[in-house]
Amino acid sequence: MIETSRLSRNGFNFLTIRVKELLTGELVGRGMALLNNYPEFGRGIPVLWDLRASDLSRYTTRDMEETNDHLTEYPGRLNVKSASLLLDDGALFLARLWSVYRIEQFPQERKAFLKFEDAVSWLAAE
Score class of each variant (00 low, 15 high):
W49T: 01
N10D: 09
R9P: 00
R96H: 14
A119T: 08
D55L: 15
R110A: 14
N36K: 12
M1D: 05
S82N: 12
R96Y: 09
E73I: 01
K111M: 11
W122T: 04
L85Y: 00
L15S: 08
D69A: 14
R96L: 13
A33P: 02
N10K: 12
L27I: 14
G31S: 02
N68L: 14
L22Y: 13
P75W: 06
I103P: 03
G29I: 13
L71Y: 10
R6P: 03
R102W: 08
P107F: 00
K81G: 00
D55Q: 08
F116P: 00
H70C: 14
S57T: 04
F93M: 14
F113E: 13
R9C: 10
D89S: 11
L71R: 12
S54N: 03
S8D: 13
S99F: 03
L35S: 01
F14G: 02
W122D: 09
R30A: 11
L27P: 02
L97K: 08
L97T: 09
R43S: 15
G90K: 11
R6G: 06
F12P: 01
E26V: 09
F113G: 11
L22D: 10
T72W: 00
M64G: 14
D89P: 02
G29E: 08
R77A: 08
T60F: 03
G42W: 01
T16S: 09
D63W: 07
G76M: 08
T16N: 02
G31V: 10
M32E: 04
M32T: 01
Y101E: 00
D63N: 08
F106N: 02
L78V: 00
S82E: 15
A119Y: 02
V120C: 04
L35Y: 01
T60D: 08
L48W: 14
R43W: 09
K81A: 03
L85V: 01
E3Y: 02
L23V: 12
D118H: 15
F12I: 08
L22M: 14
P46V: 00
L27M: 03
T24A: 03
Q108V: 09
T16P: 03
L22V: 12
